[in-house]
Amino acid sequence: MVIAKLLAARAGVAERAVYSRHLRRVWGVPGTLLGARAWPPLLRDKLHTSFNYWWQAHLLDCMIDGYQRSPSVLRKAAITKVVRGIRVRNVLGWTNDFYDDIAWLGLALQRAQHELGIAKPKALDAIAERLRDAWTDHAGGGIWWKRNDDFKNVPANGPAAIFLARQNDRTDLARARSIVDWVEDNLVDPASGLAWDGLHVHPTGEVREVEKNIYTYCQGVLIGACVELAKHGQQEKWLDRAARTITAVHDDLATNGVIRGQGGGDGGLFAGILTRYLAQAVLTIPELDPARHETADLARELVIQSAEAAWLNRVSAVSGPLFGPEWTIPADEREGRDLSVQLGGWMCLESAALLERHGLNVTGA
């Protein structure tokens, strides 16, 4: 039996560790913060010479999770500083050449506006316009991974679809549906039900090669997009797809209910992202279709078991716990240096704490 508010307390400990170890001003500019890439930080990390744009978007998302768990003036001020830090460090504007990067930031800024009233309309407009323009008919549709490239992938199409579905605009919602239909038709393995990474396109528009790597966060954004679209009609279609993917994750990408890790670097975020959208599925699916409680229970099990394993396998370090990229084994300090890995652990704990707040923290309850 999980003690009431235990998961929230764990998430708070993870939050404080990231705040104390990673948050630093951008080039000494007042009113700014960003997450240093690694800890202990080297000089280049302190100076933010390497800018992991999409890691910062997930830092912002995690900070918003923390605010929702325990609202405070200090948390809101820190979130405001990170938003400004991203803009300052990005130098020329809010966007870059990677459509997946800007979709992640767009999702975090949508939440900042909706949950905290931190509105950046110019940023959201710029991101929305860029994502709308990313769709082409090459390979039958979908959006590109980056500008002037030959690759279309789930890590760009998934978050873009969620972002556009949340724009509260009929045209954007239609585009979100088209994006997820394109992913379904081109990048979902009919045998396993899992989403592949992406595909390369000839200049003629024909598919050259499909990259069949399986990444946990691809499943997360596909689940998230289907759940988001189910709120706007065709519930059976979208919830069927979400349920299939959740089952496939449970069967093929988890060990005893614990989502498998995919290393440090960018991979440190993958499992955490999956838990974020599994938690949303747990909350949303029963509201839309109470008969699908088994799907929600399966998603809940994955979140709670993963969070428990991440916590039990942490190691103690300066200023708090240090998580590893693989939650089923004890963390290694060398593997936990990356901000991404710590955000992945924190994100997972916040996902479990969210379920706890809704009384859904005990598997099988």
Rank of each mutant, 00 (worst) to 15 (best):
P71M: 06
P71A: 09
N90Y: 09
I86R: 02
D61L: 06
R75P: 05
V83S: 04
R89C: 05
I64M: 05
L60T: 01
V82D: 01
A78K: 15
Q68E: 13
C62L: 13
I64S: 03
D61T: 12
A78M: 15
K76I: 01
R75Q: 08
Y67L: 06
S72A: 13
M63H: 08
R69C: 11
V82Q: 01
N90C: 10
V88P: 05
R87Y: 10
D61Q: 08
K81C: 04
R87L: 14
Y67K: 03
S70K: 14
G85P: 05
D61R: 12
V73K: 11
G85I: 09
S70T: 15
T80A: 15
D61G: 04
A77V: 02
M63S: 08
C62D: 13
R75G: 07
R84H: 08
A77Q: 12
R75K: 15
K76N: 02
I79N: 01
A78H: 14
R84E: 05
R87A: 07
R84S: 00
C62N: 10
D65G: 04
A78I: 02
I79S: 00
R69N: 14
G85A: 07
G85Y: 04
I79D: 02
I86M: 11
L74Q: 15
C62Y: 13
T80Y: 07
G66E: 13
C62R: 03
I86W: 03
A78W: 11
N90S: 09
L60I: 06
K81W: 00
V82K: 01
V83D: 06
S70I: 15
L60V: 01
V82F: 02
R89H: 03
I64G: 05
V73R: 14
I79W: 04
Y67H: 12
D65R: 04
G85T: 08
G66K: 12
Y67N: 03
V82R: 04
I64H: 07
S72N: 12
K76G: 00
I86H: 06
G85M: 03
V88I: 10
L74F: 13
A77G: 04
V88A: 03
R69G: 05
I79V: 06
V88Q: 06
L60M: 13
P71Q: 07
G66H: 12
V73L: 14
Y67G: 04
D65Q: 01
G66R: 12
R84F: 01
R89Q: 06
V88K: 13
K81D: 12
D65I: 02
P71F: 04
G85V: 05
R89D: 07
R75E: 06
V73F: 14
V83W: 10
M63R: 13
G85W: 04
S70P: 11
V83K: 11
P71K: 07
I64K: 00
L74P: 11
P71H: 04
M63Y: 15
Q68F: 09
I79L: 02
D65M: 01
G85L: 05
Q68C: 14
C62T: 10
S72C: 12
R75N: 09
S70G: 12
R89A: 06
R84K: 06
R69M: 14
R89V: 03
V73C: 02
L60W: 11
C62V: 11
D65H: 02
A78G: 13
A78L: 12
I79H: 02
D61S: 09
T80M: 09
P71C: 06
R75D: 07
R87G: 01
Y67D: 04
A77E: 11
S70F: 11
S70D: 14
V83M: 12
L74M: 13
N90W: 11
S72M: 10
V88S: 07
R89G: 05
